[in-house]
Structure formats: structure tokens, C-alpha cells
Deep mutational scan, measured.
Amino acid sequence: MEVRTIKVFTTVDNINLHTQVVDMSMTYGQQFGPTYLDGADVTKIKPHNSHEGKTFYVLPNDDTLRVEAFEYYHTTDPSFLGRYMSALNHTKKWKYPQVNGLTSIKWADNNCYLATALLTLQQIELKFNPPALQDAYYRARAGEAANFCALILAYCNKTVGELGDVRETMSYLFQHANLDSCKRVLNVVCKTCGQQQTTLKGVEAVMYMGTLSYEQFKKGVQIPCTCGKQATKYLVQQESPFVMMSAPPAQYELKHGTFTCASEYTGNYQCGHYKHITSKETLYCIDGALLTKSSEYKGPITDVFYKENSYTTTIK
């Protein structure tokens, strides 16, 4: 009895394709271990004539594949690729409408935090270190965002349907971005203890939790000093293409032309909904596939993004 075979390709990165001759009487799992086709788990399936010449994702289970996976995804987590594939199996079914010149995501599976993050990423200057993220990001900007969303979920250790947080998501993504040249110098002034300067680099240099107003941050924000008295913390120097200011959701007025974009969060910790506000020729609110415009805006804002380049204080 002759062994019926077909020729397929296996890959971990969709760049390096490895030619395989597979036995049609055995499952993919018996031949390769966990195997995925377009995100779908085909591990328990036997090869079919229609699979001839198709590319299958496999887990990096030998040295060659491990090197290829690390170079593309910059992670050695053995569960990463499987999590990416199972997320992709959902995100490829989502709709990605162009809204006001940006790629958004039609609401499904509690994905409003991903839509808000995706919209924000198209408006701030950011370059990702893992080629996987950078490639998928370019495709997302062009309207094909399924891979990018699935990668975000995998890097953030999230599953489809789980509630997510924009600030946490951005923080994970910033860790995989090139923020080497970003720098922030802060000064804390206390009447009792004097003053202390701190220099922050990388992710810490672009994120701040405690106030939404970048102007206020430049002037000074009140913080408790270690001595128990009130101290003032203010920005001395900022070198970065953008800054992200966050605070627990509270009524906040966004003035046209003073910011790049913002995240609105309605609801409580267990259950809520994100919308995205962007400042173009007027203010726009993007909620999944829905767009509304207004000249002014007041609502429960939790993150505001500002364009920056270089700032030095005039406070002496």
C-alpha cells in the first residue's frame, strides 16, 4: 500500500517557510505537534488534498525554529505562539472599519479597549522592536488589523473576551517599542525636605499616572512627601515624541487643539466601556464603527496623549 502524501510549508514567522512532505494517514499533531492554519487549530486533523502548498504555523520545537521565533517575536515564552494563534482565530472574524481616516474595530468580545489602543497607536510616533509587531502594525494602518490585535493580546497575556485596560495595554506595548531616546527629568520640591531631581528613561519617561493635564504637570502637581507634608512635583525636561497622561476616570474637559487623542471610560472596574476622542479640525468621538463630532467635550476621561518633541522648564 502506497503512502499518500502532500507537500506543505511549516513556519513560526510566515517569513521562513520549511518544506514538509506530510503523510495523509496521520494527523498534523502526530507529525508536527500543535499546528495552526489561519489561526485555526488543526492539530487533530489529517492532511487533505486542499492543504497542498498551504502554510501551517507550528510551535518552535527545534533550534532553527526557536531562533526564527525569537528573532521575529522577541520572546522565548513557549506558550506565546499558541496564544497568538488562538487569538487570531477570533480577531480574523472582527470587522476593521476605516473611521475618520483611522483603522478602528467594530465592537465584539469586549474589544473596546483594543480599538482605543489601536486608534491611539496610529496617532503617536512609535516604532516597535519585534519585527512581528512592526509588520502587523503597518498592515493594521492599511486596514488589516487582525494579526496586530492578536499579537497585542498575546504580548499582554490576554484572551479574547476578557476586559482590558488601555493604560495597561499601552504599557505592555511600550515595553516592546523603541523608547531608548526618551528621557524625563522631574523635580520634587518640599518646604521641609528641599528639592530632589529624578531622571527617568524609556517607558517611565512617557507615562504618568495622577493627572490628565500635561500643562498642569509642567506647572506642578501636589504629591505627598515622605515627611508627610505636601510637596510639588513638576516637569523639568521632556525628550520624547509623545507623552501619555493618565488618571482614574473623572469628568474632564478636553479643549480642541490642546491634545492629540484621549480615552474615555464609562462604567466601573468590573464592567465598563471605552471610547476614543481625537482632536482634528474639530473633536471626534470614535466608538467602534461609530463616529460623532463636537466642538467641545466633557466626560469621564482616563488617558490623554500629547505630541511632544523637546521641553525644558522655565521655572527657576
Rank of each mutant, 00 (worst) to 15 (best):
E2G: 12
T5M: 13
V8G: 05
V8F: 06
F9P: 01
F9W: 12
F9E: 11
D13I: 05
D13Y: 01
N14F: 07
L17Q: 15
L17W: 10
T19Y: 12
Q20H: 14
Q20M: 10
V22W: 05
M24W: 08
S25T: 14
T27I: 11
Y28I: 06
Q30M: 10
D38P: 07
D38T: 09
G39Q: 10
V42F: 13
V42Q: 13
T43Y: 09
K44T: 15
I45G: 13
K46N: 13
P47C: 06
N49R: 13
S50H: 09
H51A: 08
K54T: 13
K54G: 11
Y57H: 12
Y57V: 11
L59S: 12
Y72W: 15
Y72D: 07
Y72T: 07
Y73S: 04
S79G: 13
G82Y: 07
Y84N: 04
S86P: 04
A87W: 04
L88I: 08
K93Y: 12
P97K: 09
Q98V: 14
Q98T: 14
V99L: 14
N100M: 09
T103R: 06
S104T: 09
S104W: 01
K106D: 15
W107F: 03
A108G: 05
A108K: 08
A108V: 09
D109M: 04
N110M: 04
C112L: 01
L114G: 05
A117T: 09
T120R: 03
T120S: 11
L121P: 03
L121A: 09
Q122F: 02
Q123E: 10
Q123W: 04
E125L: 04
L126W: 01
K127M: 09
F128L: 05
P130C: 08
A132P: 03
D135Y: 09
Y137F: 14
A140R: 01
A142Y: 11
G143W: 01
A145M: 02
F148T: 04
L151Q: 03
L151R: 04
I152M: 11
I152P: 00
Y155E: 02
C156Q: 09
N157Q: 08
K158S: 05
K158H: 05
E162I: 03
G164D: 05
G164F: 04
G164H: 00
D165I: 02
D165Y: 05
D165P: 02
V166F: 12
M170R: 03
S171G: 11
L173D: 03
L173S: 00
F174N: 02
F174Y: 06
A177E: 04
A177F: 02
C182G: 05
R184M: 03
V188D: 06
V188H: 12
K191Y: 09
T192E: 15
T192S: 12
C193D: 01
C193Y: 02
Q196T: 14
Q196A: 12
T199C: 12
E204H: 13
A205Q: 00
V206A: 01
M207Q: 08
M207V: 09
M209H: 15
G210I: 03
T211K: 04
T211P: 02
Q216L: 08
Q216Y: 04
F217K: 02
K218Y: 04
K219A: 14
K219P: 02
K219N: 10
K219M: 09
K219R: 13
V221D: 02
V221N: 04
V221M: 10
V221P: 02
T226L: 10
G228R: 03
Q230R: 11
Q230D: 10
T232R: 09
K233M: 15
Q237S: 14
S240Y: 01
V243D: 02
V243K: 00
P248F: 13
P248V: 07
P249H: 04
Q251N: 13
E253V: 09
H256D: 06
G257A: 08
F259C: 00
C261K: 00
C261L: 00
A262M: 00
A262F: 00
S263L: 06
S263R: 02
S263Q: 04
E264R: 02
Y265H: 00
T266F: 07
T266G: 09
G267S: 11
Y269F: 12
H276W: 14
I277W: 10
I277G: 03
I277F: 02
I277M: 02
T278M: 09
T278A: 09
S279L: 00
S279G: 09
K280H: 10
E281R: 05
L283W: 01
Y284D: 09
D287E: 03
G288H: 04
L290K: 15
L291P: 05
L291V: 14
L291E: 15
L291C: 12
T292L: 09
K293N: 10
E296R: 11
P300M: 14
F305W: 08
Y306Q: 01
K307E: 12
S310N: 09
T313M: 15
T313R: 15
I315F: 15
I315H: 15
I315C: 15
